[in-house]
Amino acid sequence: MKLLYEETLGGLSIQRCYGLDGSVVVPERINGLPVKELAGYVLSETVRGRDKPPAEFAGEPEIKGGQVEELVLPVSLERVGAYGFYNCYGLRTMAFHSTTLDWGAGVFTGCTGIKRLDIRVHEGSRSCLKEILTELRQTLVVDYRDEQGRMLAKLIFPEYFEESVENTPARIITREMHGCGHMYRYCFEETRFKVGEYDRLFRQVQIQESEALAVRLALYRLFWPWGLSGDAGNVYWEYVKNHVKAAAMGLLEREETEILFWLARERRMDEMALEEMVTAAAQMEDAQSAAALMDTKYRRFGAAKAVKRSFEL
Rank of each mutant, 00 (worst) to 15 (best):
C128R: 08
E7Q: 04
D102F: 11
D286Q: 09
G230S: 13
A232S: 12
L222G: 06
K194Y: 09
T174Y: 04
L263I: 01
L152R: 14
N234T: 12
K130L: 10
Y184A: 02
I30L: 05
L217H: 08
S23P: 02
A105P: 11
G196L: 06
F311A: 00
P61Y: 02
E189M: 14
Y83I: 13
M183K: 14
W262S: 03
Q288E: 15
V68R: 01
E189Q: 15
S229A: 10
G106Y: 00
L228T: 02
G11E: 00
G90A: 10
R79G: 11
G196I: 07
V107Q: 10
P225A: 14
L101D: 12
Q206S: 05
G19V: 00
W226I: 09
E166T: 01
R175D: 08
C180A: 12
G110S: 09
R92V: 15
G149L: 07
L219K: 02
I114C: 11
Y89S: 15
Y298L: 14
L133C: 15
G149Y: 07
E37L: 03
D231G: 09
H178W: 02
E69L: 07
A105V: 15
Y220K: 08
K245V: 11
R29K: 13
K52M: 13
R216S: 00
E276H: 14
M94T: 13
G19K: 04
G196W: 08
V165M: 03
Q138H: 13
L260R: 09
L155W: 05
H178C: 03
P27W: 06
E123S: 15
Y89C: 15
V141I: 13
L4E: 14
P34S: 04
V26C: 06
Y220G: 04
R150Q: 14
G104H: 08
R150V: 15
M177H: 00
V205F: 01
K52E: 14
E255A: 11
C187E: 08
T109A: 13
G81T: 10
P169A: 00
V121Y: 03
A39D: 14
E45R: 08
R171G: 00
